[in-house]
Design a protein around this nucleic acid. Structure first.
Lengths: 209, 209
DNA sequence: GTCTATACGATGATAGAC
DNA sequence: GTCTATCATCGTATAGAC
């Protein structure tokens, strides 16, 4: 086990600091100090601060989306074999389950989720598009399958409801830690399954409405 | 009609620039230049950049929340008179209708919505809390009424679903302009009513699930 | 190829003259 | 209330050491 490379240490430090303080308020000096590298190393290895945050996001987003795509295609395949429509709840589950599980896999993953959630409301279009471009194929796949499963709804309606669903997921993923429910909280290890179950109930019912 | 006051012009310029470029990337120099006031005027009238963004948010949030609260209490009153439980759909409508209508009332209002949506994922707790503190009484009211209307659900579940609902609304309000649906768009003037109708269908069904 | 030291223009903020 | 001058810190760029 050698010392992690300079780029790796920069990515880790940036992920944590961006999540904690936000993109703009986090200075390259804070990142390079935490990573114990020289200030100029960021520009050397990544080109700019903006390219750095893109790299931070892509590092985890690519494998996560691969998994979600695989699960979606499994649901699609299963429906084809059984000669029936894909199940709406299973489609939504394939989309959200990896996200909820991934979020609790490590502190780095949790920081990453915060970062990605925030990126959607990022005013800078180039940062925002990192996420959108990565998710686009996944979104298109889910949109297509949902349209198959909900033939009584127009494409426009399915699209709007998918927008609602993504908003719920995004908002929940980064708010669930920050808001304090007005009642004694359940055991943390149980939160994930409750969250998944309730989200599926809410979203499936809303999507079919 | 006199020339708007210095503070007023600063608020207008800040609202527009914060919405367009974000809080941190917008310099006080850009704001004071656009408002045609001196750089130091912001610190004189508001104290700091952070206090300025708070003032920008409060200016429109206070009357909007008053309206939403009034509508919620009307639904509550009506249910009491008819000796029945408040209608879930009407409760949600009282919460979201003013938001959708307000959003299209002016460009300033639209910018404000962008700002508020973004403020929820703001890493800076002091900025984030401006919104949360303003909405808290409204949220508590809606939470209480929804609990009355959904006696078969636990408080925990209602709370989670309310979180989902707020995420949908928040996400939709600031994304509906930025994403391009994969189909020819409906007439813009019709979008509001479609949006409201579909949101109510989605959220009501999800909440009752 | 990697990395360090250093410099440049612009930023948020403030103090003090008017 | 308004303005100018000033300060520490920011992102970025580059020259040169290893």
């Amino acid at each position: 086990m050698t010392k992690p490379s300079t780029t790796h240490r920069i990515l880790d430090a940036a992920e944590q600091l961006f999540a904690e303080h936000g993109y703009h308020p986090t200075s390259l000096r804070a990142i390079t100090t935490a990573a114990e590298v020289n200030l100029a190393a960021v520009n050397y290895h990544f080109g700019s601060k903006k390219e750095l945050v893109k790299a931070v996001m892509q590092r985890r987003l690519v494998p996560l989306n691969k998994l979600r795509m695989r699960l979606l295609m499994e649901v699609e395949e299963k429906a084809k074999q059984q000669k029936c429509l894909p199940d709406v709840r299973e489609l939504i589950a394939a989309f959200i389950r990896p996200t909820i599980a991934f979020r609790n896999s490590s502190q780095g993953a949790r920081n990453f989720i915060i970062l990605v959630s925030r990126s959607l409301s990022e005013p800078d279009a180039t940062v925002r598009s990192v996420f959108l471009e990565q998710v686009e194929p996944l979104f298109a796949k889910l949109f297509g399958l949902l349209n198959q499963s909900l033939p009584h709804l127009t494409k426009e309606v399915v699209y709007l409801r998918l927008l609602f669903l993504l908003g719920s997921l995004n908002h929940t993923m980064h708010m669930v830690d920050k808001v304090k429910p007005p009642f004694p909280e359940a055991a943390p290890e149980a939160l994930d399954s409750v969250l998944e179950e309730e989200f599926l109930a809410f979203a499936t019912s809303g999507m079919k409405a």
